[in-house]
Simulated assay, not measured.
Amino acid sequence: MTYGSETWSFNAGRIRKIKVAQRAIERAMLVSLRDRLKNEDIHSRTRVTDVAQRISTLKWQWAGHIARSTDNRWGRKVLEWQPRTGRRSVGRSPTRWSDDLVRHAGSQWMQVARDRALWHSLGEAYVNLTINGQSPL
């Protein structure tokens, strides 16, 4: 379910859809719809990691990996690419992959990622926001 999720750009609506899909899968694995169990009870019985937490962790780890890479791989080039006009389209622009990283770690997040201890502690706080329902994504 999370294959390739470290490269996805998220907003609250997409995270909600993924959480709904996870709950439906857990319910299908464990009980029938007629059992009328609460989602929390089903989740405690399956003990599956919350999908939003897992996606946040994967994205944070991938961002650190990309920021620390020193060779000229395409991931770094795509991340640093700027449009020719220098501006995004008129109106509300779609969320970029790095927008939530900038919001949480600052505009210099690529330099912060080089300090692994600091990046790891920031990553724990980033994932905890997801657990508490305040989606950083």
Rank of each mutant, 00 (worst) to 15 (best):
E26T: 03
S5I: 07
T7F: 15
S93K: 11
S98D: 12
K17G: 15
T95K: 10
R34A: 13
M29N: 03
V102N: 06
V90T: 15
L58E: 11
R114H: 12
G123I: 03
R45C: 01
E40F: 02
A117T: 14
W60R: 04
L137I: 01
Q82N: 11
D71S: 11
R23H: 11
M110K: 12
T70D: 08
S9P: 08
T2R: 11
L137H: 14
G91A: 04
W60M: 03
R88V: 00
A21P: 02
L79T: 09
S121N: 01
A125W: 02
N39F: 01
S121K: 09
R54E: 14
S135H: 08
H65L: 03
Q111L: 14
M29K: 00
V90Q: 14
Y126I: 04
D50L: 12
W8Y: 15
D50T: 06
H65A: 05
I55R: 05
S5C: 15
P136T: 11
Q111F: 01
E26D: 09
W81Y: 13
V112P: 05
K17C: 13
H104F: 14
A21D: 14
V20W: 14
V90I: 15
S5L: 03
N39K: 01
S107F: 12
R103F: 12
E6P: 01
T95Y: 03
R73V: 07
K59L: 05
G86M: 01
P94W: 06
V20I: 15
R16N: 10
K17A: 15
H65R: 11
I55Y: 04
Q108L: 14
I18R: 14
I15N: 07
G75M: 08
K38G: 07
L37K: 09
M1V: 09
V112E: 08
V31P: 02
W109G: 05
S44V: 05
N11G: 12
Y3C: 05
A125P: 03
Y126W: 04
S107I: 13
E80F: 07
K77S: 12
L129T: 01
W97R: 07
I55P: 04
V20K: 15
T130F: 04
K19T: 10
S5A: 15
P83F: 00
N132Q: 09
H104G: 02
W62S: 01
E80D: 09
A125L: 06
A125V: 03
E26R: 02
R36D: 12
N128H: 08
R96T: 09
D50C: 08
V78T: 03
V20R: 15
K59T: 08
G133A: 00
K77N: 13
S89T: 13
E40N: 02
E80T: 09
L118K: 10
Q134P: 02
R27A: 13
R96P: 03
N72T: 12
